[in-house]
Each structure stands twice: as C-alpha cells, then as structure tokens.
Amino acid sequence: MSKFQFPPSIISRPVYGTLEARAGKQHLMIADAEGAEALLDLAAPELMARSHIIFISRGTDYAERLKALSPQQFYEGPTYAASVSRIRRVLQDAHMGLQVYLAGTEGLMGQAQNEAMQAGIPHTAIQTEHRGSTARRMQCVHCKGITEDVAIDPFQCAHCGLNLFVRDHYSRRLAAYQGVCIDAEDPGNVPAAKGIYE
C-alpha cells in the first residue's frame, strides 16, 4: 500500500494531509513515484484544464495515466534534481492565487515546498499528501551534508561517515530532518540499525 500512517511526533515534524481542489486560476502539481496516485485521486477535468503537472517518475510508470488526465501542461522528469530548474522557472512567472499541490515522498515534497516558499507562498498555503517511500532526507548537523532516502536508524552520513541517529526535528528551509552523532559520548558504541518506523 502506498499510504502510511506516521506516528504522532513533535511539532516541528511535518504533518501531511489529503489533497483537495482549491479556488484559483492556476494550479501547479508536483509529484514523485506513487505520489501520482494522489493526483489521480484529485483529478477532475475542470481542475486539470488549469493545471501544470510536474512528475518525477523515479522508475515508476504512472506517467501515461497522468497524461491521460489532459492537464494544461505536463512534464515528466527522471529525478528532482533534473526538474528543479523547470520548477523555478514556473514559479518565477506565477501570480498570487497560484495553488500548489505536492504528493509523494517527504524529500520531494520538502524540496518543492521550499522552492514555492522562496517564491513567496507561505508554507501553510501549500498542500501536501504523502505517498510511497517513507525514507527521509537527512542533514548531518556536523558536516551539513545531505543524505537522501534514509530508511534506517542509525545510518552513516554519506559525506563525513559519522554514525547518525535520526531525529524528528525538521527544517523546512533545508527540507531535511536532523541527523546527530550517536556515539559522541561513547565512541564506537553504535547500536544495530533498524527501520525508522520499526
């Protein structure tokens, strides 16, 4: 199943909802992988006629079904990094009243939300719906490097190699959770990794 119930947590941890159509002349939808299912659930012809869909497939095959919704504009990209300049270009010319819908993994939604915020949309006005992988985008608080798609706790920083534990403290600006050295007080004492939600 692509829907996951996240356990309750601290206030800084994002909470995701269910996308709903809102008033507005322009609609920008950004989704990755199973996030496509949330757009398929949302689709209505009159909404799609005013929507621009940016889909990051990550190896899935939802693109044809999304295209069949006949959105005003459709783009499929392989990765977020490949799509980000296009997202920025769209936001650059957008007007107040633009509705932004994000669906898929936390990493995709966090990064796209950050782009929309920087363009001038408050984060509370941006809709999100989680689908698919529960892996996290993690910042190492020590070296500042970002490790993508972290599913286990603790994990090894992809940049500096420290063993980090996974916090629920989340930064919208970095679009990442915080990873902190787990064996700082007792070097070498690193517990065995398990799934974040195990």
Binding site: A23, M96, Q99, I121, P122, T124, A125
Partner: peptide, 10 residues
Amino acid sequence: ADALGWPREA
C-alpha cells in the same frame, strides 16, 4: 482575496 486563492498570511 480569499476567493482568488490568496493565502491568508498575505
């Protein structure tokens, strides 16, 4: 503003 989709914070 609300009907045109403006965010409350703006």
